[in-house]
C-alpha cells in the first residue's frame, strides 16, 4: 500500500463522462488500483465525502464561480494535492460550459463557468471530451513513476509529462480556433488529418487535404489542437514510442 500514489478525484461541473473514461480502462483499472494508485477520494466510485490530502488530484468539470461550494472545493483540492491534473475538455478549456449564460431554473444565477486553470494553478492537462481511457492510464502510470520510480523512470516520466505540463501553462483556451490561429495561420499545418479524427463531434473535415472546421459544431474541447502534431511535438518522447508503449503495457500486465 505504502508505495502506491494516492489519488483524489474532484468532480465539479462536468458530466461524469471523464469518470466513465477512467473506468473504461476495464481490467486495466483493476490493475492500476491493485498496484499503483490508492483511490482516496472520488464521490462516484468511492464512499469518501470530502476532499483528502493526496499526491495527485484529477479534477473533472469546469468551476461555476457563482457556486460557493464549487469554488471552495477547487481551492481545497489545490491546497491538498501535490499535483493537480485537469481532466477533460471542461476542466482544461471550459468545453460546452463556455456557452453557458445562466438564466435557467432553479439556479438562474449559475451563469459563469471557468476552466479550473483560471482559478488555481494546474500542473497537467488531459484534454478531450471525453478524454481517452488510455491517456488517463498513461498519465496515472507516469505520475506513479515520477513520484515513486527510479532515477531513469523519473526522467522518462518528466519527459512524457512535460508537453502536458506545458499545455497547462499555455492557457485555458483551445478549440478549432486555436488550430487555425496557432497551426494553420502559422504555416505549420501539413494535412495529416489527426485533428479530424480527434474531433468528438465531427466538426472537422478535410477539404483539398486541409482542415475545415465547422465552428457551429465545435464544442471547444481542445482535442484537435492537442492531438495535432504541429501544436506540440516532443522528439525526445515520440522517437522512443516503442519503448515507452512497451513500458506502459508491461506496467499493466
Amino acid at each position: 500500500m505504502a508505495d502506491k500514489i494516492t489519488l483524489g478525484y474532484t468532480h465539479l461541473s462536468g458530466c461524469t463522462g471523464c469518470t466513465v473514461a477512467l473506468a473504461d480502462n476495464y481490467a486495466g483499472l483493476l490493475t492500476l488500483l491493485d498496484r499503483y494508485v490508492d483511490l482516496k477520494y472520488m464521490p462516484t466510485l468511492a464512499d469518501v465525502r470530502h476532499v483528502q490530502k493526496v499526491d495527485v488530484s484529477f479534477v473533472e468539470g469546469s468551476c461555476c464561480i457563482n457556486d460557493k461550494l464549487a469554488v471552495e472545493e477547487l481551492k481545497e483540492t489545490r491546497e491538498k494535492s501535490t499535483v493537480v491534473v485537469a481532466l477533460g475538455g471542461c476542466a482544461c478549456y471550459g468545453n460546452i460550459t463556455r456557452f453557458s449564460r445562466g438564466g435557467q431554473q432553479n439556479q438562474p444565477q449559475h451563469e459563469a463557468y471557468l476552466p479550473i486553470g483560471d482559478i488555481i494553478k494546474v500542473d497537467v492537462y488531459i484534454p478531450g471530451c471525453a478524454p481517452t481511457p488510455q491517456m488517463i492510464r498513461n498519465v496515472a502510470v507516469m505520475a506513479y513513476l515520477l513520484l515513486k520510480g527510479t532515477k531513469e523512470q523519473k526522467e522518462l516520466a518528466t519527459a512524457f509529462l512535460k508537453p502536458l505540463m506545458m499545455a497547462a501553462q499555455r492557457g485555458t483556451t483551445a478549440c478549432f480556433c486555436e488550430l487555425m490561429t496557432e497551426v494553420i495561420n502559422q504555416g505549420l499545418c501539413m494535412g495529416c488529418g489527426s485533428c479530424a479524427s480527434a474531433c468528438p463531434v465531427n466538426a472537422i473535415t478535410h477539404e483539398y487535404g486541409k482542415p475545415q472546421g465547422e465552428r457551429d459544431l465545435c464544442i471547444k474541447c481542445g482535442a484537435c489542437y492537442n492531438q495535432c502534431p504541429r501544436s506540440w511535438f516532443s522528439f525526445d518522447v515520440v522517437e522512443n514510442y516503442e519503448a515507452i508503449n512497451e513500458a506502459i503495457m508491461a506496467a499493466l500486465q
Binding site: C15, C64, N66, C129, L217
Partner: peptide, 26 residues
C-alpha cells in the same frame, strides 16, 4: 450547479444542440 443547457441551446443550430445535450451526463 445548473449549467443551463436548455437556455444556452437557444439560438444554436439543431445540429450542435444534441452534441451539447449529450454532455449533460456522461
Amino acid at each position: 450547479p445548473v449549467r443551463g443547457v436548455e437556455k444556452l441551446a437557444v439560438g444554436k443550430t439543431p445540429e450542435q444542440v444534441p452534441k451539447i445535450a449529450s454532455r449533460v451526463c456522461g
